[in-house]
């Protein structure tokens, strides 16, 4: 006879294993509301992947309005802040955030910088869209970069995508200097 075991009685590391198999962070967030015991599990999540295109009416839509873009970007900013605000010392295996270069996106950089101060981050992918509509040619503020640089020493893998070709060398040099333990660096210049 099999002893009845319930999901909620499984130990944390097994639950984490299950949550890690959920490709979308939002699925994990909706699962963790089910039990008080699970609410801290979000802070243990080892893969943090957020993508603005998920919140847009159509993936890579050229036709989306500025309003839709701003709204989607705000959701990514909010999600990043929420997820990275969990008290945790667990290693982040993969951190990938795709957002739009707008003023409010500075909070993403701040959250990432803060998380890197407290947690070990093994691989980070920072995908900065130049503006899905060509409307938003806003460069990320230099002070935000300096803030991030001071916390990047332990980073091992960086992937930079959609970097404007005029700035690719500057960015590459910047990351090479900041992340002294870097093992892999991928750079892809502007995809537009």
């Amino acid at each position: 006879m099999i002893r009845k075991i319930e999901l909620s009685s499984l130990p944390d590391d097994i639950l984490m294993h299950i949550l890690d198999k959920l490709e979308l962070l939002s699925d994990a967030v909706r699962t963790c509301v089910l039990s008080k015991r699970w609410s801290h599990l979000l802070g243990l999540h080892s893969g943090i992947v957020l993508d603005i295109s998920r919140y847009l009416p159509e993936v890579h839509s050229i036709g989306c309005t500025l309003q839709e873009l701003v709204r989607a970007n705000l959701l990514v900013v909010e999600a990043t802040k929420r997820i990275l605000s969990h008290e945790s010392r667990h290693t982040i295996m993969n951190l990938s955030i795709r957002f739009c270069l707008r003023d409010e996106s500075i909070d993403i950089v701040r959250s990432v910088g803060k998380a890197m101060e407290n947690r070990e981050v093994l691989a980070a992918e920072v995908i900065m869209e130049q503006g899905l509509l060509y409307l938003l040619q806003i460069w990320i503020q230099p002070e935000a970069l300096i803030l991030l640089a001071s916390k990047m020493q332990k980073l091992q893998i960086i992937r930079l995508r959609c970097i404007h070709e005029e700035c690719d060398l500057t960015w590459t040099m910047f990351f090479l200097e900041a992340a002294s333990l870097l093992k892999e660096l991928h750079v892809q210049v502007s995809c537009f």
């Binding site: 999901l7 097994i14 299950i18 949550l19 198999k21 959920l22 979308l24 699925d27 909706r30």
Partner: peptide, 14 residues
């Protein structure tokens, strides 16, 4: 097994 349980959760409301 973890994948199987995750598949049962995916895309659903709480």
């Amino acid at each position: 097994v973890a994948k199987k349980v995750a598949d049962m959760i995916k895309g659903k409301s709480p």
